[in-house]
Design a protein around this nucleic acid. Structure first.
Lengths: 160, 160
DNA sequence: GCTCCCATACTCGGATAATAACTGTCCGAGTATGGAAGG
DNA sequence: CCTTCCATACTCGGACAGTTATTATCCGAGTATGGGAGC
């Protein structure tokens, strides 16, 4: 049970986009930032676009930019965009084939094992939803005040 | 990011073992309970044995039994036994290749993105560790008082 | 009748294929650019 | 000099292989059983 490493790429790329201040950045530039395979990062950014987290523009001067304020993008939004909505635990409703199992009962909701696992999943999601990109960005700036400028610099954007 | 469906099998099988009251149950019987592939369930039970959650005995009258009281086996124990210790988020430390990245820094601990993801993971684990097999079993019995007897019956164990 | 022994059937355990998911790559559709031609 | 048009280069987007993890299966090592032979 490991999530795609695209999640790490997406989170860091979103932070960099936040520091780009609304200017479009190409997948190639974002990939060069951490020396990642550009075509594959592009794939992850497409997922973010489908989820409405970033907007994409084709052609010269095109690229990706955040679709809304970083304060309104949670870590959960990004994780779900890459990994999908479904929760980690898979309830295949094996109780249907057990003693007294009924095919007209949805054991994803009634099985107590499934309920317990869902509670844990919910705690996880709650924690992810409580943190926004703006929160992380601000924390990074507190620790490394030069980070935003360094990022803009590496993205070939005017320093300010 | 989906966990193996072996987790569902392992959890339900552990509950059934709890109701078996210390008597050994074969992988075949446990598999027949929910009409699962026996050889593959056996594989998952081996993982539980390696983790010290169940003990195994070979030969006739052999099988698996819980290694300790169900009140001292948490859902986290079972999940970790099947899925492994590592947390879901993979920090490949891409910041090492970013601006100002240092190869002598462990970004799994210092990167703020990684820290945020770890916090969520911790909340998830805390929730799983708070529930024991005995808790789930008791909740099931409250809802379906006949469940333990039905289980023993299907496992070809003396009703009591 | 009792004890010992051995063949047997049964169980787990790890090694081996089949399948699906993830990772990585490529090329085409569409677009803003920038220069050249014409007025 | 200004406007219009077009060729160009650049970007995302989805379609296509390579690799790893998951799922499923099989057969061998070891063990308690149960019957039979011997005392």
């Amino acid at each position: 049970m490991q999530m795609s490493e695209g999640v790490e790429w997406a989170l860091h790329s979103c932070l960099n986009l936040a520091w780009a201040d609304g200017r479009a950045v190409t997948a190639g530039k974002l990939a060069a930032f951490y020396d990642l395979p550009a075509a594959y990062l592009n794939r992850q950014l497409q997922a973010l676009a489908r989820a409405g987290i970033v907007t994409s523009t084709s052609g010269p001067r095109g690229g990706f930019r955040l679709a809304r304020d970083p304060a309104r993008i949670t870590l959960l939004d990004v994780v779900v965009a890459i990994e999908g909505e479904q929760e980690a635990f898979r309830c295949r409703q094996i109780m249907r084939d057990g003693p007294g199992g009924r095919s007209d009962v949805d054991y994803r909701r009634h099985c107590l094992v499934s309920q317990a696992m869902s509670r844990a999943d919910l705690a996880w999601r709650r924690e992810l939803a409580a943190q926004t990109l703006a929160d992380i960005g601000a924390a990074v700036e507190r620790k490394h005040p030069g980070a935003p400028r360094a990022a803009r610099n590496r993205l070939d954007l005017p320093a300010d």
